[in-house]
Amino acid sequence: MISPGLADALGRWLSHLSALDDCSDATITAYRADVSGFLLFMQGHFGEQAGPAALGEVTLRDMRAWMAHVRGRGIAARSLARKLTAVKSFTRWLAERNGFDPTAILSARSPKFQRKLPRPLDVEAAHAMLDRVELQAREPWVAARDLAVVTLLWGCGLRISEALGLKGMDAPLGPTLRITGKGRKERVVPVLPAARDAVDLYVQACPFDLAPPLPLFRGVKGGALNPRTIAKVMEHARLELGLPSSATPHALRHSFATHLLSAGGDLRTIQELLGHASLSTTQAYTAVDTARLMAVYDKAHPRG
């Protein structure tokens, strides 16, 4: 187990992130696991009663040993990079308060990894997905529900958690939606008429009371709709359409961004609409757009 001193320091750091940096619950949970794993590994170097200052005794060799240990458990380079980021953040915060030298930990190099490009659907495939999703359910209100959710994902660029987080008070949808995304960051997104119409049809058909504080989208028994239900609906639809396994609910969010970029949208605006904290995240879509253009070029101009 982590020594009481280190456990207390970790708890205070996480409270700091939650209160002042406004990190989401999911981020706090991930950081707790990442840093706890690191501290447990280093406990062997510190001894059972080692306190927070013992982190100043960690060497680059120790850091390499920990990173090798993590990779040896089958953890991908991308995930290790995230863990290292959490460890550095915690160490920097603690060093400022306890006055030890964090150089060895902060100078550890993040593993290199190839950034995965988003895999959006083209416009035709996205339309086909919406059409097919509407035909999946036997009950009309369920079909209307599924279509409304999927239309919000593509038409507004919402995450599935954001769409399913809407409440009865959000309907009928107005010209814009105020969304609270990752890190409790708020953004305002425009709502296309098609999305408003789809939600209106669902609300009219839904057999349950959609009171203001209750979830807008419901399961067949009346509880909050499970995101896995929408994932299964799209899975069945993509199999019937012959689309790749990457045609998931999140792919529709990618499609929203890529189609906006293709239509001339600027990166800053798309960043705001998606709620990305960093422009570098949004810039991945320029690579997608370029890759698609090159594919079209190669098809039109085959090499001899």
Rank of each mutant, 00 (worst) to 15 (best):
R92G: 03
R184G: 07
R228A: 11
P140T: 08
F46W: 12
H254N: 03
M1A: 15
K83L: 01
P249W: 10
S18Y: 06
H254P: 05
A26M: 08
N226G: 07
V188T: 14
H259C: 01
G11K: 08
I75T: 13
V199Y: 02
P212G: 04
W154S: 00
L39K: 05
G222Q: 10
A237G: 06
V189S: 04
D122Y: 12
L192C: 01
A95W: 13
A33E: 11
R73L: 07
A104T: 13
A54R: 05
E139G: 00
F100C: 09
A263S: 14
L243F: 13
D146L: 02
A198E: 05
A211R: 11
P212L: 09
G157F: 06
V150S: 06
S246D: 12
L10E: 13
R119Q: 15
A7L: 14
R82N: 04
N98A: 13
S3G: 12
G242F: 07
A33N: 08
L216P: 08
W66F: 13
A128G: 05
V58L: 13
E235I: 01
R82S: 03
A26D: 13
R97S: 07
A247R: 01
A277Q: 06
V149R: 00
A50N: 08
R115Q: 11
V35C: 05
R82G: 01
R238K: 15
A125Q: 15
T281N: 00
R132M: 15
A171Y: 10
P244R: 10
L94E: 07
G174Q: 14
A284S: 06
P118T: 01
R238A: 12
A171W: 11
F256P: 02
E139H: 05
A30C: 03
R159P: 10
D22Y: 05
C206E: 12
R12A: 12
E134Y: 10
A54W: 02
W13Q: 01
I105E: 03
E235D: 15
G99N: 04
L55Y: 08
Y285R: 06
V123A: 15
R178D: 09
A81G: 12
P140Y: 09
S89F: 03
G51R: 07
K182Q: 07
F113D: 04
T281I: 00
D25S: 15
T286E: 10
G168S: 11
L261V: 04
S89I: 06
S3K: 08
L153P: 02
A300T: 12
R228T: 07
A251I: 01
L84S: 03
R64N: 13
V220Q: 08
D101P: 01
G37W: 03
R61S: 13
V87N: 01
R187P: 04
D22A: 12
L153T: 03
H301F: 08
W13Y: 15
P120L: 09
E162F: 07
L214V: 00
R145D: 01
A81D: 14
K116A: 14
G265A: 15
